[in-house]
């Protein structure tokens, strides 16, 4: 019984960590557990959560995608160009998502067919597409967007901000793809042992390419939300976002070696980061200490997770 309880604790360690964090912050700041603040945290988390869900697919195969921040910036800039015309925004959204998928495909082909390490490929494309964004925007933010785009990031349904629905939809699709389809099983098999996956007849190149396409698409969705929320597309949008996304995946218990992990864990990881950011602001902690606290939480979570394995 004691052993079972211990196993239970370790299995849900990230969830328990999130709840503990919430309780501590709630005790210090009475404003934390209000409906408006919780909706607020969830909205703020949406960008990182959606990036992290896409990142989970890549990390489950044992890869990594550093280019997501740059993809976010260029897709946001493309969307902003469409939004500036003031017409129907749907073509802009489609163009942004297609561009995200295309950049993902480039990453995926270079990793699978080109057999270059994912870290190197996406480091290069991260740099290239940041540069493309500078060229495209001329180094200046694209602003003065029409009202046609504002609803995506700023409207609510029954009082719940739209970006929260985006998290739920993306999460449901990701969960279904990973747990209920052959594609999902292949991802875990590939991440667990690539050679045996290939020998058992799985087209590993195809799976590998597809996960980067997924990550590119989620980065584009994140780019759409960011652009809509702040009403402009900045050439330096999303700098460093890849690290927060990777942190969320790791905090959620997914192994960087691949083959092990869940998207539900990733959501909890993203929430931990979001709650921490929000809580540190609410408590008025000095910005100097905030960075230390965030780093320590990541370390602690990963150390606890190691204990489970």
């Amino acid at each position: 019984m004691v052993i079972n309880f211990k196993n239970f604790l370790l299995k849900y360690i990230s969830l328990i960590g999130l709840l503990t964090l919430c309780i501590i912050i709630a005790l210090i700041s009475p404003r934390f557990l209000t409906v408006s603040n919780i909706l607020n945290v969830l909205t703020q988390v949406s960008v990182n959560a959606i990036l992290a869900i896409g990142m989970s697919f890549v990390i489950l195969t044992g890869g990594i995608d550093l280019s997501v921040g740059s993809v976010l910036a260029i897709t946001g800039a493309v969307l902003a160009t469409f939004a500036k015309t003031g017409g129907n925004i749907l073509p802009g959204v489609i163009a942004a998502i297609m561009l995200g998928a295309a950049i993902g495909l480039v990453n995926g082909l270079l990793v699978s067919k080109g057999k270059v390490q994912a870290f190197i490929v996406t480091l290069a494309t991260m740099t290239i597409f940041r540069g493309v964004t500078y060229v495209y925007t001329g180094g200046n933010p694209i602003s003065g967007l029409g009202n046609n785009i504002s609803f995506i990031g700023n409207s609510s349904i029954f009082g719940v901000p739209l970006p929260i629905f985006f998290i739920i939809i993306v999460l449901l699709i990701a969960w279904y793809a990973l747990n209920q389809t052959r594609f999902g099983r292949y991802i875990y098999a590939l991440g667990g042992n690539e050679d045996s996956a290939r020998l058992s007849g799985i087209s590993t190149n195809r799976i590998k390419s597809l996960v980067y396409v997924i990550s590119g698409v989620t980065a584009a969705i994140a780019g759409i939300i960011v652009t809509s929320r702040i009403g402009s597309a900045s050439p330096n949008a999303g700098v460093g976002f890849e690290l927060d996304a990777i942190a969320a995946v790791v905090l959620g218990g997914t192994s960087l070696a691949g083959g092990e992990g869940k998207v539900t864990g990733t959501i909890i990881g993203a929430l931990i980061i979001g709650v921490l950011n929000n809580g540190l602001n609410l408590m008025g902690v000095s910005p100097f200490y905030q960075a230390i606290v965030k780093g320590l939480v990541i370390l602690l979570a990963v150390l606890l997770d190691k204990k489970e394995k």
Binding site: R31, N40, N281, P287
Partner: peptide, 23 residues
């Protein structure tokens, strides 16, 4: 009455402002 960092970034300025409005 409140003093928080948003790293000179627009998106972070939005998030930090929302958080400060809560407290």
């Amino acid at each position: 009455v409140a003093s928080q960092s948003a790293n000179f970034d627009r998106q972070k300025g939005l998030d930090v402002m929302q958080n400060i409005m809560q407290s």
